[in-house]
Amino acid sequence: MKNINKTTDEFNKIVKKEQPAVNKVSNFLKAYLVGGTICLIGQIFWELYMTLFDYSQQDAETMVTITMIFLGGLLTGLDVYDEIGQFAGAGSLVPVTGFANSMVAPALEYKQEGFIIGIGANLFSIAGPVLAYGMVSAFLVGLIKTLF
């Protein structure tokens, strides 16, 4: 016979009351602000690549992606991106900088296990699903379009 007899629902009510609340409105605004700013920076690079370096629209777009991946990776290496993530949540997760972060972070974490089974094997430990589902979904969409 136990001393504490509560159902999960009864207990969850207590937990919800005592837990510090997550401020969803401020989280939304922070995600919006940071995510929007990252996209704005991307747009500025895009215009720069087209006007200053004479890239085509398509190549400039690709250069922007590479630039943002570089910046996301660099800020991860400099131990800054996790702080941005704690502040911005989805705002820094969703942009391609966050994708770069999701590759660099596990690679760094397992660096001490060596270059091949450490860095090499862990580059995709978080980013892998994105690529797998992206490719499979692209294939299926293409298949449907081809068949119909």
Binding site: F28, A31, L40, G42, A90
Partner: peptide, 9 residues
Amino acid sequence: GGLICGICQ
């Protein structure tokens, strides 16, 4: 861009 991130949040 911000809206997409906000919705995900």
